[in-house]
Design a protein around this nucleic acid. Structure first.
Ligand code: MN
Ligand code: MN
Ligand code: MN
Ligand code: MN
Lengths: 141, 141
DNA sequence: CATCATCCGTAGCCATTGCTACATTTGTCC
DNA sequence: GGACAAATGTAGCAATGGCTACGGATGATG
């Protein structure tokens, strides 16, 4: 057995994990801007408590995250005022929502029931490369 | 526009996000036990530094995580000794590895190149319900 | 068996994301 | 306008998962 040689090759396999960590880091931003866009679209405005109910977390968690996304130039916030999207945030929201819809439609066409497809697509969407997204689009056609 | 009615329905959409958070919580455990199994299989033993290279993180991050998984009865550790799997850890590793392989094979059969399929499957695997996994298996046949 | 490189543990820092408890602001209703 | 309810902010705690710096343990080599 070439077990010493095997040990030397371990580092080469770390790329997917590094990439997955990077993707997890943008996941909150993607979910939040998409939620803000949808809530404004559907109810006319987006409030801290709307997001808290939407994500099923406390208003404190939302308030803190919204402040960070404001610092990252994705959201616009003022105390006790509705939350708005920046241009940058709006672009990310459109892109994320489109990708999310493709993943959801793909799972349904694959034969997954709607309830499970909605749950799974909420996580899967953040781990889909442009190559995989293209493959899903081809399958949908 | 029925915007007040729209606000009332928001909470109903939180289920996928709650589920996604639950899945993220088990992600590290799944990746670790799978890695320990593979490293023992390929190199004869699994050391803290092997995992650090495998995941591309510091040995400190690995050491802390391994200790927690030991407390969760998934891994067996002693200071300065190789890391072993418990029965529970081994079962989780087998199940996770099988699921991971199905997701990877599925993406490749869908038309994704191997490099991207390996990256994407590393994240997607943790967000695949048994229903979606079944749909992927059907597609592979 | 002494030395030295490697491995691993500990201390302590930071960021993120969850929470409860409490304070403040805002808006509504009389 | 005052009172009350709802919305939002703030303080502070915990768990997780990154990191560097440092020191002790282990094992290989001469
Ligand atoms: Mn999502
Ligand atoms: Mn895995
Ligand atoms: Mn993984
Ligand atoms: Mn994920």
């Amino acid at each position: 057995m070439k077990k010493k040689k095997a040990k030397e090759k371990i580092k080469a396999r770390s790329v997917p994990f590094s990439q997955t960590r990077t993707r997890h880091a943008s996941e909150t931003a993607e979910d939040y801007v998409e939620a803000v866009m949808d809530l404004i679209d559907e109810t006319g405005e987006c409030r801290v408590l709307d997001l808290a109910r939407f994500f099923n977390v406390s208003h404190v968690t939302v308030s803190r995250t919204v402040k960070r996304l404001n610092d990252q130039d994705l959201l616009l916030t003022q105390s006790y005022k509705p939350i708005e999207l920046t241009e940058k945030g709006y672009k990310l929201a459109k892109k994320s929502k489109k990708r999310h819809e493709i993943v959801l439609d793909f799972l349904i066409k694959l034969g997954v029931d709607k309830a499970n497809a909605e749950i799974d697509s909420e996580g899967i969407e953040h781990h889909v490369s442009s190559k995989t997204l293209d493959a899903m689009k081809r399958f949908l056609k």
